[in-house]
């Protein structure tokens, strides 16, 4: 089926600074909000000038009615310019783009989704958790586990939101200022060694090194894993062939065939 993509000038409804260079924008677009799926992203123009030239990709963080949210970390000039935008300003946005997470796994067989987030990787996973939580029925044993890895306790994002959805959240920080001292992948290793995880499906987003480790761990336990990849994107909608990743079927465009892939299809360099 051909999915619809929109290019629109969209109004910023609200903005929230979340500390530690993180901020959240709520954007008003019935079209994008109604068609977006977890794991998809949008391409934003952060300036009308030629520097920065290219759009910036950001995951769809949450959807509520006619608005959707993006969660962003300031890492360079583009995200810095974006952080200066205020409610009432308009942004030129293309979306929703890419192939998101596959949320339709046979629910009877797979009762345990494990979401692994590293840093900004939590951004698309809230939307995913919301969609997965809809599958929960009264007497099912269905339980979503969320493993969050962050630099320090002030870099932990979305903990409350996940808990509100009924997820079981575990936290690791690099400096041990909250939760386990270590990485999200350390939490996953511990999790997977328990018997209850035999029917788990792993969903993950975060830095490349973490994705690779998660893929390896899931593979070792014979668990299906979906990974949301990042690549430098010049267009975001399949036209430039710039964003490819090596897979078992040759190069695939992260922006079009991805950003979410099955971990065992990727050739992890």
């Amino acid at each position: 089926m051909k999915e619809k993509v929109f290019q629109e000038s969209i109004k910023i409804i609200a903005k929230e600074n979340l500390g530690a260079d993180y901020f959240k924008l709520s954007l008003s677009s019935p079209k994008i909000s109604h068609s977006a799926k977890p794991g998809q992203f949008v391409e934003l123009r952060v300036s009308d000038a030629n520097i920065p030239l290219l759009r910036r990709p950001l995951g769809v963080h949450r959807v509520e009615g006619n608005t959707f949210e993006v969660l962003c970390e300031i890492v360079g000039k583009g995200t810095e310019l974006l952080s200066k935008k205020e409610p009432g300003d308009f942004l030129d946005v293309i979306g929703p783009l890419g192939n998101g997470f596959d949320c339709d796994l046979p629910s009877a067989a797979r009762q345990l989704p494990i979401l692994v987030a590293g840093g900004m990787g939590v951004a698309p996973l809230i939307f995913l958790a919301e969609k997965l939580a809809e599958r929960k029925t009264k007497n099912s044993k269905f339980k979503i586990k969320v493993l969050i890895g962050a630099k320090t306790k002030s870099h932990i994002l979305c903990e409350k939101e996940f808990k509100k959805l009924g997820c079981k959240v575990k936290i690791a920080t690099d400096d041990g200022s909250r939760g386990f001292r270590g990485k999200a992948t350390d939490l996953l290793k511990k999790e997977l060694s328990t018997v209850s995880c035999q029917l788990a499906t792993v969903y993950t987003c975060g830095p490349q090194a973490m994705l690779k480790a998660v893929a390896k761990l899931s593979g070792a336990h014979n668990l299906p894993a979906q990974v949301s990849l990042e690549a430098h994107m010049s267009c975001g909608f399949g036209a430039c062939l710039g964003c490819v990743v090596d897979t078992k079927d040759g190069y695939k465009r992260v922006c079009k065939e991805g950003p979410v892939f099955w971990a065992d299809d990727i050739i992890w360099g």
Binding site: P52, L54, A231, H232, L241, G242, C243, V244, V245, D246
Partner: peptide
């Protein structure tokens, strides 16, 4: 060619 293929 192998990635990364583009940069700004």
């Amino acid at each position: 060619n192998p990635p990364p293929r583009t940069c700004e």
